[in-house]
Amino acid sequence: MRIPALALKRKQWEPFAFASPAMVLIAFVIVFPLAYSFYLSFQNFDLSVGPEHEFVGLKNYTEGIFRDPRFLGSVWNTAVIIAPSLVLELLLGLGIAMLLSRVLHGRPIITALLAIPAMVSPVMAAMAWRMMFGVKYGAINNLGRQLGILDVYFDWFSSPFISIVAVVLVEVWHNTPFMMLVLLAGLQSIPQELYEAARVDGANPWQRFWSITLPLLKFTMVVGVMIRLIDLTKLFGLIFVLTYGGPGGSTETVAFTTYLAGFKDFRMSYAAALSYVIVGGVLILTLLFFWMQRVREARAA
């Protein structure tokens, strides 16, 4: 095969020139502000005090990590919301993707319809669900009453436990479609010949699922879960509209507490420090995840 050399040949400056518009913009809107907010995280910039601020060393970081029970509580809340959401999104997403892969007619349109929640903003999703959950005039309670299974006055935010259930429900509604699409892509990339060969060997559907689908889908599942995990650590819009962190602080996530520190307490430096604590935590979590993955693969080999 002939290698088309001309298309690959380049002048020294060309790769840079082509990438430069994006690089300049990124430097301007991301790199510089990041550096600046990193600098701010060592200051005591407080909007209600004024524009002046001074160096306070690691004070913001030590306060966030050791002296702020509310922030530490929100780390726990975030975990409590993330764990069931991830499991449910994965299971439901896989289930729906497998159903979809069986469908021969109208698959694109059904996929599109099912995908819509994932394309709606968290704020919109939460607004819609607020009207679904509403005591007395919400759709769920009214439907429940007509079916005779729910009191129309059932309060979806009456206790920390039930509120977390409600938040997880909305989160699952919002992002299962994303998981479904990822897994559907994964399913479609599995060669059909494998299934046919298995069928010839007399494998039943259950065996085919365990020995072909699951192993080959593992990588896609890991990627999907990883992306959702990272996104869930930023869970904010949903909480903002649906519960505002309540009742009590039971649904306050790390992103929400950070928002409160910055936008309600006006402590911009502290909020910046908290964001870096979060990014650090997520980074460690991600690396741990990849490391575990690698160890397991090594063991399997």
Partner: peptide, 14 residues
Amino acid sequence: LVLRMLPAIALIIP
């Protein structure tokens, strides 16, 4: 990856 991890609030003020 890092951009995806970053909460918007870290960028917004700067």
